[in-house]
């Protein structure tokens, strides 16, 4: 599904990613953990196409195509979904409006007709129940005045509707209380399938109690320094990041 090879990225002159390698196959759930400043968010930004990063070396292949050549919206239409660490507030654009525009862009990209209005509403209402959100959310401006938990739920709701192939969850657990975390995790778990892959970026092990990853990687100083199964997360929690950083050195 996604193959990252020797990826180097910098902001201005400052290198952030320094030769990152990672392969994610269809249906796999990978977690990337790491200390602050390791490059976790940069990785999610580079994969989703955020401007402002220089790719100095390496390549990223997604479904056999060169991902880095694609505009952000093309990546999205091809099935890459980024759940933001800090979802952006967009006053004046309602959730349902954006979702419909998004879904229709994907359909057009795939040579399909626009979604029928009634079918769309049924789909959305179905998914909104899953995330335990009120229908009123649909008609509110995107993320405007939402609490932290509501914003994160809204991100997962969007994923549920757009049905991406590759979900990148950037610190989806940050700022969530335990109840909200459970709801978000349930939403994510319901999206798991043999066709869909996940890349979870997180600082804490807590999220992984609720969304069990197949693989855990530790990112430190722009490289993956250790990989393992889900038990690696527990070990990290116990021993701290210094443990792996020490090993890397």
């Amino acid at each position: 599904m996604l193959k990252i090879e020797n990826l180097h990225a910098s902001v201005g002159d400052k290198p952030i990613l320094k030769g990152l390698n990672l392969e994610i196959k269809a249906g796999e759930v990978h977690a990337i953990m790491g200390p602050n400043g390791a490059g976790k968010s940069t990785l999610s930004h580079v994969l989703s196409g955020k401007p402002g990063y220089n790719i100095t070396e390496g390549k990223v292949t997604y479904k056999g195509k060169d991902l880095l050549e694609m505009a952000p919206e093309i990546r999205a239409r091809e099935g890459i979904f980024l759940a933001f660490q800090y979802p952006v507030e967009i006053p004046g654009v309602s959730n349902i409006y954006m979702l419909k525009a998004a879904l229709n862009s994907i359909r057009k990209h795939n040579g399909l007709d626009e979604v029928d209005a009634m079918d769309f509403l049924t789909l959305v209402k179905d998914k909104i129940k899953l995330l335990q959100m009120d229908q009123q959310f649909l008609y509110r401006a995107v993320n405007e005045g939402f609490s932290g938990g509501e914003k994160k739920r809204n991100e997962i709701l969007q994923a549920a509707i757009l049905e991406p192939k590759m979900c990148i969850l950037d610190e989806t657990d940050s700022g969530l209380d335990i109840d909200a975390l459970k709801v978000v995790a349930e939403g994510v778990n319901s999206l798991r399938s043999t066709e869909r892959s996940f890349l979870m970026i997180t600082h804490y092990q807590r999220l992984l109690d609720y969304i069990k990853p197949d693989f855990v990687h530790v990112l430190a100083d722009g490289q993956i320094v250790k990989s393992g199964g889900s038990e690696l997360a527990l070990e990290l929690e116990e021993k701290g990041y210094q443990w792996v950083e020490g090993q890397a050195a």
Partner: peptide, 15 residues
């Protein structure tokens, strides 16, 4: 705002 434009792009909407 650039960040709003990017957000919408990640939601499949062209620039």
């Amino acid at each position: 705002e650039e960040k709003s434009i990017f957000y919408l792009q990640t939601r499949c909407i062209d620039k």
